[in-house]
Write a protein that binds this DNA or RNA. Sequence first.
DNA 1: TAGATTGTTAATCGATTAACAATC
DNA 2: TAGATTGTTAATCGATTAACAATC
Lengths: 233, 233
Amino acid sequence: MQKVISTAVIKRLPRYYRYLGELRKKEVVRISSKELSERMNVTASQIRQDLNNFGGFGQQGYGYNVEYLYTEIGKILGLDQEHRVVIIGAGNLGQAIANYGDFARRGFDIKAVFDVKPELIGKEIGDIKIRAMSELKEYVIEQKPDIVALALPKEHAVQVANDVVSWGVNAIWNFAPVELRLPKHVVVENVHLTESLMRLSYNIRAKQNEQQAGELAKKLAAEVKSESAVTKE
Amino acid sequence: MQKVISTAVIKRLPRYYRYLGELRKKEVVRISSKELSERMNVTASQIRQDLNNFGGFGQQGYGYNVEYLYTEIGKILGLDQEHRVVIIGAGNLGQAIANYGDFARRGFDIKAVFDVKPELIGKEIGDIKIRAMSELKEYVIEQKPDIVALALPKEHAVQVANDVVSWGVNAIWNFAPVELRLPKHVVVENVHLTESLMRLSYNIRAKQNEQQAGELAKKLAAEVKSESAVTKE
DNA sequence: TAGATTGTTAATCGATTAACAATC
DNA sequence: TAGATTGTTAATCGATTAACAATC
């Protein structure tokens, strides 16, 4: 029925959504693929191709209605449905996620936070009380959260992931630096901060090398020049 | 001089590094591209192609020495050089980054954390005292940090990014949901949590649709079957 | 109607996979 | 030496870009 959309396209959708959200806030009513492409630093062709995976949202000679396109992409991203989120791990990262207002605005409702540490249990994050891990099973089976965010040490992430999936959870937002091997009906999205930092590190070095190469080239050019000057003498 | 490596390859490097680190911990001495490909769920061909962008690390008939390959990829990723990191924003996210031990192990040293909020200034995170934003300029110019992590509201991220770059910073790890437009000598790595969550949301819906389609197909098949049964009567 | 801009097909480019000769 | 497995070239696949007819 619905064709499979490539991950390359899906990765770009939230970015389109963000830009359209900004335009909308500025009360821009319409935008052409060309204008948007210039702002976003992509090709207009790509924007049109991407959007046409989901249907024709534009109008020839006019472009795209910002409000409409924003809403439609929101629907494609599933932001029109509410997502009840449970966070496992109430360390800094878990708390950061729990407190991040942007999520709530987009329909991601943090419903509960769990931790093993006795000193954290009962503490409040915003208006959410931290619960004991021992209560997790009952909670998950009864409340059927849509998403479980794993913000706990990698030593425990695998086990907890397997557990919550066996209790009926179908979507995992994983912050632990491990690969989760889960049944294929389960959706996993990873946030691997260490990998991100390593890519940054790679690019720092690459840029350094690039600059050194540039300087070397300059130097060589200068030498060749002076040599040819010598030759001419 | 050195050829440009595609971002697709660079994205995979940290994952290779992680797997090799695990093998190393298990005291596995050698591994073939085939074995590694099975563990990692990629093709052996891709592994060999990826590694050969940087040189021949293996040996025909033998495979790769785990320890050696691990070290070499580490070097490629720039993990053999120390990175001094400054975090801007001492909210939950900033604190989570500051406390994340994995980074320190990989040579990313959190040297300082800054915030504007008076109630946070002077507070300690681990053994790092939170400093006032007013001291940032002097600190950056004197200490020349290698990386600045932006863990502050998007309203301020753009300004702070421009500032620190003008003070000599060349690498930004950006957690704010904005696009930073910086001079091309500056390396930027983004962690857009909202986008990650939206992709998860997209995939949740896609999977739902898939399952519905599956059920529909079954139903139709059943109908066709019963109809043909009727026809046969 | 003329001008603008989409939706979509075709061409190009790049990344992945397959194949195999080189070699340990 | 025979077997294994790399490094690398060639073939395939998929994603991006270009082009343009359709149409608002």
